[in-house]
């Protein structure tokens, strides 16, 4: 997994509330195998009209934000379906960080597993950021995970992230290797569990 430490990039404001994972990646693209090409269908129905033409009013279609690596979203960003392909779409498009007042829980978890940072900010800091980006769209935003800070022009504020998620992102850790290092504890638990709660293992009634 790619590490996340610090980036400076253009940030695209998308401050609508409840941008669910169905918006980020519509269900009809769930069949796509992972080949690094999910970015093409990111926000498909918001970015393009029925004929496949770009909607000029959608922020990611506008000049300074087309190459954004940071998205600044609204409350409950990524709520809804557990589809990890929503994270693939953001990542493959080039997005490395989403900043929002709150996130869908499963979305945030999926993001962490793919090197995408979900940074939680207060509504007030979010409002100031939207304001700054509206005034000066090309203003670079620096997100520093080590310091947990966001800097944009004169604005300077903190964001929150779960400590374990932060460690994972900073190190680019693969969970499976980490888990395997606890193999003996897992085996011991399994054996004890089988004794204490034998009914948890399904056997078919005959």
């Amino acid at each position: 997994m790619e590490k996340f430490t610090r980036i400076t990039a253009t940030a695209c404001p998308l401050p609508a509330e409840n941008i669910d994972t169905d918006q980020i990646l519509p269900a009809r693209y769930l069949k796509l195998p992972r080949k690094g090409e999910h970015g093409k269908v990111l926000f498909q129905d918001l970015r393009f009209d029925a004929d496949g033409h770009e909607r000029p009013d959608f922020p990611l279609n506008r000049a300074p934000w087309r190459n954004a690596k940071i998205i600044f979203g609204g409350r409950n960003f990524g709520g809804g379906s557990s589809r990890e392909a929503a994270v693939y779409a953001l990542f493959d498009y080039g997005i490395r960080c989403v900043i929002a007042p709150s996130f869908g829980d499963i979305f945030s978890q999926n993001a962490t597993k793919n090197g995408l940072l979900t940074a939680v900010v207060t509504e007030a800091d979010g409002g100031a950021l939207t304001e700054a980006l509206t005034q000066e769209p090309a203003l670079g935003v620096t997100v520093d995970l080590g310091q947990q800070t966001i800097v944009c022009g004169d604005l300077h504020f903190h964001f929150t992230i779960d400590p374990a998620r932060r460690t994972r992102l900073l190190n680019g850790w693969d969970d499976i290797d980490l888990t395997e290092s606890f193999r003996s504890e897992i085996n011991a638990f399994k054996a004890a569990n089988l004794k204490q709660r034998p009914w948890t293992v399904p056997t078919q009634a005959t």
């Binding site: 990890e84 392909a85 978890q109 999926n110 597993k113 374990a164 980490l178 395997e180």
Partner: peptide
């Protein structure tokens, strides 16, 4: 609870999951 594809792969391989 629901999980994403990376976590599904983790459960398939280890029958465990890291959670806060």
């Amino acid at each position: 609870f629901g999980i994403g594809a990376s976590e599904v792969a983790h459960v398939l391989m280890t029958q465990t999951l890291w959670q806060k």
